[in-house]
Amino acid sequence: MGHFTKKSKAKPEISTASLPDIIFMLLIFFMVTTVLREQEVQVRTILPEAEALTKIEQKRYVSYIWMGPEKLRGNRFGETRVQIDDAIIEEMTTIRSIMYRKLTQEPRLIVSMRTDKESVMGVVTDVQQELRKGGTLRINYSSKRDISNL
């Protein structure tokens, strides 16, 4: 009987020795999947909604172009501007060389156009003409899933 009392005295404990290993596993997962947010978007881009969507799985091939009204101080919005990487494009003709350079670095480049849905086609057409001049022909009109009529 003394045998039994001995057993009950031992406190049940979960071993925490493997805890760092588990955390490290998670850490490594997130380190691998992380793509650091490189730039701050200076234009407003409320994306349009669509149904016929395709996913871009390879994030590494994607280069973004933002188009929309410029964010100003005090929640106001200015003229429609184009932003590539972290700079607002002043002269449309510079887009072709920027895009050509990107294409030489990554031949499978997909240009994703994140355009505000209240923009007009004029600026989109201008950018598209520049993309053609730069040779970057794979584009994507970034849009969200339409939730309203599901």
Binding site: M31, S112, R132, R138, S142
Partner: peptide
């Protein structure tokens, strides 16, 4: 881990794909 959790963006870009004419 918390740092990478915060900085990670898992959302995939969706949209309508097109190929522009040369």
């Amino acid at each position: 881990l918390i740092f990478f959790l915060v900085t990670t963006t898992i959302d995939v870009d969706t949209g309508i794909g097109m190929t522009l004419p040369p």
